[in-house]
Amino acid sequence: MPSLTQLRAMIDRGLAVAALKQLDVLAAQRPVPAGVNRLRGLALYSENDFTDADVALASALTQDPHDEESAQLRGLTLFRLGRPADAIPLLESASSWTSQTRIDPNYVLALCYVDTNQYDKARAAFATQYGFAPDSAPAYLLAARMLLRRDGLPVAQQFATKALELDPQLPLAHLLLGEVALAGEHLDTAIAEFEKERSRSPLDGSIYDRLGDAYSRSGDYAKAQQSLQRALLLEPNATDLIFCSVRFC
């Protein structure tokens, strides 16, 4: 029978199914040897079997309530199961992340806060991951970016606006406000925000790309083509921009 260290190495090498066969034998022993349920949970998580992983990790925590790795893994598992409220206490209790989790629990914790509408806590968690002060302009802008990705448009707009209030010269803030407006189909506002960002960063090809998209959606194809051609000149290797520009040729 391989040792637990060897079984973990198997899981890390992508041999979770083979490791599980050995771990199931160990789990049938009474009492279950320490560390077996944690490894079973890790192996099951690696195989995307989140329901069984949760059972194994819950057993590991019953056996050792101070098992921080099992707490982190179970928090990640509950998040993947769509249970962010249950995941939060487990992720909050983790003082640091381990390489075995492969994902910074601060990031998942922040997503859990977003999914439970705790936006200020989400901002603080995102800020911790990036080393920003939680009430700083970069922290607000970072949180706005993450909220935009999860379709939290009203709060994303609120946080990006707050970031600009704290630092009127903050790079990319107007770009993000434009992206929020574009996602909400507020095209005039999006164009105005992108133009503000363009005046600050005239050599950023991505801004011209966004402008091209906004002008295209508004039906101003001449300005859309002009913006996309400018983007191409600045970012000649961006093949997706080439395809966009061709539409207006």
Score class of each variant (00 low, 15 high):
L141E: 11
L176M: 15
Q158P: 02
Y130A: 13
Q157L: 10
P202G: 09
L147P: 00
P134Y: 02
A127F: 04
L153V: 08
L164I: 11
P168A: 11
D151H: 15
R150W: 07
A173L: 08
I207T: 03
A125H: 06
Y130K: 15
D167I: 06
E195F: 00
S216R: 13
Q129N: 11
L211N: 02
F132L: 06
V155G: 05
Q169W: 07
L148V: 08
A143E: 08
R145S: 15
A139L: 04
G152H: 12
E165T: 15
L203C: 02
I191Q: 01
T189C: 02
T128M: 10
S216Y: 08
R198G: 00
L142A: 07
A214H: 01
A144I: 09
D209E: 13
E195I: 04
L153H: 14
A173Q: 06
A122Y: 07
L187G: 06
Y130N: 11
E179Q: 15
L182H: 02
I191A: 00
E193F: 00
P134R: 03
L142Y: 07
D120Y: 06
L177Y: 05
H174T: 01
D151M: 12
G131Y: 08
A163W: 03
D204Q: 14
D120M: 11
L148T: 14
L203M: 14
A181H: 09
R149Q: 15
L203G: 09
L141C: 11
P171L: 09
P171G: 10
S206Q: 13
G212K: 02
E193G: 01
A192P: 05
Q129T: 07
